[in-house]
Amino acid sequence: MATDWQALDRGPVIPGASSVAYRTGDWRQERPVLDLQRCVHCMLCWLYCPDSAIRVAAGRVVGVDYDHCKGCGVCAAVCPPRASAIRMVPEGAA
């Protein structure tokens, strides 16, 4: 929804820290599915995720923030092969 141009005299400056409000999750074509049974909580996925979308609590991986995960698959790629706790699944598939 556009703002009237008369209200934009300050130029393109908006309140900061707005990335949380901006849902990027619907850009996804594939979603990471996390198997907490296999996860060793090495934190590599949390470290590499470019959107800070790996949810962590008390030093342990607890899930994925699907409102912001864009489905890039970096988490699945860095997950240690012996754990293989993250699978990329086509969006819409079970």
Partner: peptide, 16 residues
């Protein structure tokens, strides 16, 4: 905190 120079797509670029 503010953001200076955010993306403005066809819905707002022309107003700026």
């Amino acid at each position: 905190p503010i953001t200076v120079g955010p993306l403005a797509l066809p819905d707002s670029y022309m107003e700026f």
